[in-house]
Design a protein around this nucleic acid. Structure first.
Lengths: 322, 322
DNA sequence: ATTAGTGATGTTAACGGTAACATATTGTTA
DNA sequence: TAACAATATGTTACCGTTAACATCACTAAT
């Protein structure tokens, strides 16, 4: 492998001038620069990142901090990673998945998936390197998140526009903020449409297919809802099964909507109407945000919200007035 | 960050002795070693991998070479990456996804997903670093692959055991070897059970839901098959839809089986009987194989096959003799 | 013509480790 | 106890790059 020394020799200049061609090309006379550039080309020179890392204290490595609760193969996480990875790889950044923050292993930056505010806080206070958070925090850290409130609002609004007024909701009961935001969106949409909020239409559940089934069954058997908004696709899958169980045809007799837009939503039968989170794009955004933060550690903190996008498929329809 | 120099100073020895404690602990007197160890502990010393990389020519980075045809967010690929990543991360190896081999960017090893023999061959000849292939090749390279022939055989055999004799098959028509192997397994199982092979039961298709639908429709309408073996889950999904289209109840009137065991197979309705590839485990195996190869570049080449595992769910059943 | 200023390039040392060799210490044997 | 291994530790140079400073040539101003 050719080193800068080889290039310098071939171009008849000092190593430092070669270095300058790479790092501040404007400071080198164009005649000299051309000589060096063509020498680099001839020798197929590519910088040794290890040497560079040693002297600049830049590793070209990013750590992805992922919650213990999530499996690595979780489709949501994997899509996020795909987005992150595509951006990082393009910039020759390698990355490494970590389940906890270990400051001993050097990296240029961290992308953290927050779970709840407290954990975020604790975590971020320990780090003093560039960091971007998938989530929210009031700390001065770059954050990217999904606009869950808007997602909840828009979906509820869509269902209302279809003539439904009795809309059940299955909320996720978890130490995290997103379900509450989605739920708030639901309530706000009802208010804005002058539809009274009915607490009997609300169920809290774990985020599992099984619990979605149970809670949906309850609602279908004990209330007169014509639509059911599940705050995750996994729940909605359970609700779909519950509808089959009680013999209600989806969407003719009951509309069912989910939230997330994970891989299997299009495979469920009927295809699930859902709020798709732009997870891949968020991954990309997290990575590019981190890269710009690494470039410029003192830039203004940014907080970005990505709007989820409603995917209208055939688990929902206009209210059937019979 | 503490360096070896700091440790050496604190322990009252030379830097080299500290280095030895890390790399060949047995060569240091235990009294000295303890002094150094506790100094390292006090100072929270962790080696600087960049410096190490520079002098040892080891980067602690692995490149994943993924085919251009695959999306990064492909669930199959993502599960593989999850397995790889879990092993690499544990060993503090970072990784980087590349779509083509670029020898200029240093790494300690490469994991390549082969597509077809020719591509593999071309690729591997270019590389002269540790490499493990997900696929097959006659070159002397470590390979890990799925036993597709056995998968095809076992699934066909399972269907035969359920009394079916008229078994349709949708083969994938692609420049790749796995569909042929699965197809061979199908044929061999027929032979071993003395069931004549009927070419009318065979369709070739692209690996898409849509084409699966079309080809399944053809078979359902023009033949008397009682079971249909699709060489991928995506195809099987289309077949499921085709069965609904012609009003045949799955599995009562037609058994449908897939192959792959991807994320959505359990979500399809009815749940799909399939041959699950141990993709996550294969990812882990690829990574650990690579790490041992990096440790010992001259070890004997290994070729491993992982058996796929039949997941019997409710898209298949015993032949209904009416 | 002398001085100061500017732009282009070179020199030196350092980043934090390890390899190879040199030296010191200890133990073994005649 | 001298002589010699064997074992334990130290010294030096180097890996490939950049930062900081030094030098040089040339132009502009006095």
């Amino acid at each position: 492998m050719a080193t800068m020394k080889d290039v310098a020799l071939k171009a008849g200049v000092s190593v430092m001038t070669v270095s300058r061609v790479i790092n501040s090309p404007d400071s080198v006379k164009s005649e000299t620069k051309n000589k060096i550039l063509s020498a680099m080309n001839d020798l197929k020179f590519h910088p040794n990142y290890a040497a560079k890392a040693l002297v600049t204290n830049r590793t070209r490595t990013v750590h992805l901090l992922i919650p213990n609760q999530l499996e690595t193969a979780d489709p949501y996480l994997m899509t996020l990673i795909a987005g992150i990875s595509d951006v990082l790889s393009k910039n020759y950044y390698a990355f490494l998945l970590r389940r906890e923050w270990d400051s001993h292993y050097k990296c240029d930056g961290v992308i953290a998936m927050g779970l709840n505010e407290e954990e975020d806080q604790q975590l971020l206070e320990k780090m003093n390197i560039p960091c971007v958070l998938f989530g929210d925090t009031n700390l001065s850290i770059d954050c990217i998140n999904v606009n869950d409130q808007k997602g909840g609002y828009d979906m509820t609004n869509y269902i209302l526009q279809n003539g439904h007024e009795k809309i059940g909701i299955i909320v996720i009961d978890e130490d995290n903020t997103f379900p509450v935001k989605r739920y708030n969106g639901y309530q706000q949409a009802l208010r804005d449409n002058d539809i009274p909020f009915n607490p009997n239409y609300v169920r809290y559940s774990n985020n599992t297919e099984g619990d979605g089934f149970t809670k949906a069954l309850e609602l279908l058997e004990s209330t007169d809802i014509t639509a059911l908004f599940c705050l995750s696709d996994v729940l909605a899958l359970g609700a779909l099964r519950a509808a089959r169980e009680v013999g209600k045809v989806v969407p003719k007799e009951i509309s069912i909507a989910g939230f997330d837009g994970v891989l299997f939503d299009q495979v469920a039968e009927p295809h699930l109407t859902t709020m798709k989170q732009p997870v891949y794009e968020i991954g990309q955004a997290l990575a590019s945000e981190l890269l710009t933060r690494i470039e410029n550690p003192f830039k203004k903190v940014t907080k970005k919200l990505f709007d989820p996008k409603i995917m209208i498929r055939n688990s929902t329809s206009k209210l059937n007035k019979d």
